[in-house]
């Protein structure tokens, strides 16, 4: 469904993404992990067309390299941001309808917006300004607005960051529901290995912009190179 071929991105001297190729299958929950500064968020920014790059990315068989971010959103690629983004001037409902009005193929769909508000459980905050939401609320809002674009694929950038154990459970359930009930393919960048091993079918580990390995999570966590460079000895020797 989403296929990257030999993608390289340089910021001046720094090679943020180095000759990376990967293929996300339809319906999958696909994980990306790696140390800080490995280039994970940059991979998302390249997919969504925020920067130019070498190589090629295709989505549903169509080349999306070179399209501008808003066009890529309309093609069906939705995303959230590592640092939660909201529209402080708009209410929860209005923010979610931005996704519907501008991102969805057939334009504003009020029923769908209502459905999404219930789906991310923001009914009670519907008419609130988004600035008043707590961190979890802001994350749900970001997810809701991106779902309102009726995406085929949703990319989540560290959705668990700053959340406690209960919130992590809640978000994991939400992500499963997005995948199963809405039939949306998911790519998730995450530092919590436990989240990734429980959720994902396939896991891509990158370091300094290069792929270390890409396999089922059980295999990845046993990979000596991954343990060496990312997980550390403590992880391998736990329990």
């Amino acid at each position: 469904m989403l296929k990257a071929t030999r993608v390289t991105k340089k910021f001046g001297e720094l090679v943020a993404v180095n000759d990376l190729s990967f293929h996300v299958q339809d319906g999958q929950i696909y994980g990306i992990a790696g140390p800080n500064g490995a280039g994970k968020s940059t991979v998302f920014n390249l997919i969504t067309g925020n920067y130019g790059y070498e190589g090629k990315i295709e989505f549903g068989g169509k080349k999306i390299t070179g399209l501008s971010p808003y066009r890529i959103a309309q093609e069906g690629i939705a995303r959230t941001f590592q640092i939660p983004q909201i529209f402080p001037s708009l209410t929860v409902k209005k923010s979610i309808s931005v996704g519907s009005r501008f991102g969805a193929r057939n334009g504003l769909d009020e029923d769908h917006v209502e459905k999404i508000i219930r789906f991310v459980e923001l009914e009670d905050e519907r008419t609130q300004k988004t600035g008043r939401l707590n961190l979890l609320g802001k994350k749900k809002l970001m997810i809701g607005a991106s779902l309102a674009t009726k995406p085929k694929i949703l990319m989540l950038d560290e959705p668990m960051a700053g959340s406690n154990a209960t919130e992590i459970k809640e978000l994991m359930n939400l992500i499963r529901k997005i995948n199963v009930e809405l039939g949306v393919t998911v790519i998730i960048i995450e530092h919590f290995m436990k989240v990734l091993t429980e959720l994902t079918e396939k896991l891509l580990i990158i370091e300094s912009g290069s792929m270390i390995c890409c396999d089922a999570p059980e295999a990845v966590t046993k990979n000596p190179e991954v343990i060496e460079s990312y997980l550390g000895k403590a992880y391998a020797e736990r329990d």
Partner: peptide
Amino acid sequence: TAFLALKDSEEFAMSLGV
């Protein structure tokens, strides 16, 4: 709405198709 969304967060707005 598009103006306000772009003012508040241009990258978020664009990721939603604006």
